[in-house]
Every structure is written in C-alpha cells, then in structure tokens.
Nucleic acid binder design. Structure first.
Lengths: 177, 177
DNA sequence: TATTGTTATACTCTATAACTATA
DNA sequence: TATAGTTATAGAGTATAACAATA
C-alpha cells in the first residue's frame, strides 16, 4: 500500500502513548485530552481493521449515509458531516473516482445531484460494514459494563458541547492573552 | 482574527449536527461515531473558549508538556504527542516563532535541544490553562454523574484500542474487499 | 551504526472566494 | 436574489526521504 498510488486515506498518526518520565500536568485531568487519546487509539484500530478497503472513517461514514439515503444531495451529505460544500465535492469526487458511488441528476432540481452507490459499491460496503460492526462490537465487549455507559456519555457530551457552542450567550471570551 | 495573518490554529470544522430526514444507519450505533461527534463538538467549544490565544488543542498540549518538563527534548515531545520528528520540529518552530517557547542547548548531548517556555509564555500559559480548566470543569459539571464515568470509560477505551492495535496477533485483516 | 534534529517535498483535509447554472 | 455545485487557491497538519552533526 504505497503512499503515491492508492493510499487515499490519511496516514495514521502515531500512537499517543504516555511517555514514562514525562509529566502531563493538567492534561491528565482533562476530559478533552482523554477524548483525544481515545480517538487517536480508535482511529489507528479502525485503520488497521479496514486496511483492505483503504477507506478512512470519514469516507466510511459518507458511504453509509449514501447507502441509507439513495439520491442524497451532495450538499446535504456535507451538512451531515460538518463539511463545507467544497469539501463535500472533494469527498464525492473521490467516492465516484474509486467506483463506490455515482452522481445522477436529481429529480426536480437541475442544479443538484443525487448520490447513489454503484452495484459494486453496495457489495463492497456490505462486507465493510460487517467488518466495522464487528470491530465495534469487539471494542464494546472489551469494555464490558462500561461500554453502554460510555456511548451514552459521549452522546450527552456532544449535545452539551454543541449547546455551549451554539448558545448565543456564550460568545467567544475575549480575555486578554 | 483573519485567516491570512495570525490564524495558525486550524480552522474549526463545522458542527456535525444530525440532519433531520437523514438516516444514519449503522453510524448511530457505533461507539466510534459517537466518539467522533463528541470530539467534533468539543473541538469547536475549545476553539471558542480559547479564541483569544489562537492556540489549537495540540499546541496547548505541547505548551503544558514543556511547562511541566523544562528542558524536554524535541523528539520526546513528538513521541508524547504521537508525532513524527519532522512534525515536532514544525510544532516547535511555531511555538518559538510566537514567543511561547525557546530552544536551548541540552546539557550532555550536543545534538539535542532542551525546550523551555519563555517568561512571557509562562505568564500567558497560566491564564490559558485557567481558562481551559474552567471550560473542562463546566463540561464535566453539565454532565453531572456521568462526567467521571465518561472520563474513566475514555481512558479504558484508549487502553483497549491501543492493545488491539499493538497486539501482534491482531494483524491487519486482509479480507477481500 | 544509531540517534537528534533539519531541510525539502508531497499529500490530505479543509477553508475562502469567485464563478456558472438554475430556482 | 438565493441556492447547488464547481473551480482555483491557500493554509494547517502530517508524512517520507536524504542529510549533517553527534553519540
């Protein structure tokens, strides 16, 4: 899997292992840092599990969204994924170039595309989804009782942080640096 | 804060809000996707809270590490953060160019640098750390009882996923796409 | 010979801005 | 005028590879 031909997924970052002898200070106590460490580890694990498909977590999400919502508009895909229009375009370009998906005219609006998986994309995604689901189940199983609570906590955290970011009362604090 | 002069922190991604009418399929059930949503929201919230300092979460982590480990080697900083040497170099270049930190000769090894905060960097970091800690406390408080469990679950998840990635028995599965 | 850091280069991801076509 | 998508460009972040100096 060379960097120059078919490796379109971002290269995995190195593991953020705690280095003995290094004092992490505040970081060890922060929820945000724990989240970053977990995401780093999970990203590498996802990457390893899905190596045969060369699909990043983000591209995987896009594939699932298109599969479950045939005819999805490019812009709506970007919105669901927190991307700018131009980002959704690049993402769609890649998916179509790789033969996963295709653009068709959207009925009722000549400006827009409807996105669909190709037959080959559907077949490949079925196996990829199974691998990802199995990977997730193994993780949750390894967490035991904590698994369900963790997922619920993450969803709550996303909600809480979103509320903080969206609440007009919470303007950026212009404290003096 | 314009994009072209002093905005060195990465631009915030848009919010990954659930789009009504879109079916997320598998994604809604995945721990990994919940993690991604939470990190997205938390990133934006961090960005807003620390807007006055123009320091990304990663650069903040580097500053704390240097502050708590005066004389830290550049390479060790990169190792702690999961970065390649060249990445640690760029990071250090930025920190020194912005006046946060400085390189000094490392005692006992003429090849290496020891990293130190500047006096101004120490002063600025004290306020920045206070803002970040307060931000984190507010989040945890909003989570109530779930807060502590969430942090413990994330640490466990990082450990479990790391073990999966590093276990030589868990080779990348070369399934057929 | 291995390690520390540097230089040069390339690639991914994402954004902004200006543009076209359609609504 | 507003929206869907495109094109062109820029910037952050990270990687690889070849290199110098030192261990």
């Amino acid at each position: 899997m060379s960097k120059t031909d078919s490796l379109d997924a971002p290269p995995p970052e190195g593991l953020m292992l705690p280095v003995p002898g290094v004092d992490y200070g505040l970081l060890d106590g922060l929820l945000g840092y724990a989240l970053r460490r977990a995401q780093n580890a999970l990203y590498l694990d996802f990457y390893r599990t899905t190596a045969a498909w060369d699909v990043s977590p983000q591209r995987f999400a896009a594939l699932v969204l298109i599969a479950r919502n045939p005819g999805l508009r490019q812009g709506l895909l970007g919105q669901a994924m927190g991307l700018h229009r131009s980002g959704a375009l690049r993402l769609t370009d890649w998916l179509t170039a790789q033969g996963w998906a295709e653009r068709r005219d959207a009925p009722g609006d000549a400006r827009a595309w409807g996105l669909y998986l190709t037959p080959a994309g559907r077949r490949r995604l079925a196996r990829l989804e199974a691998a990802v689901a199995e990977h997730d189940r193994a993780l949750v199983a390894a967490l035991g009782d904590q698994g369900a609570a963790l997922k619920a906590g993450l969803e709550r955290l996303a909600w809480v942080a979103t509320a903080r970011s969206t609440d007009p009362h919470n303007k950026p604090r212009r404290q003096k640096p």
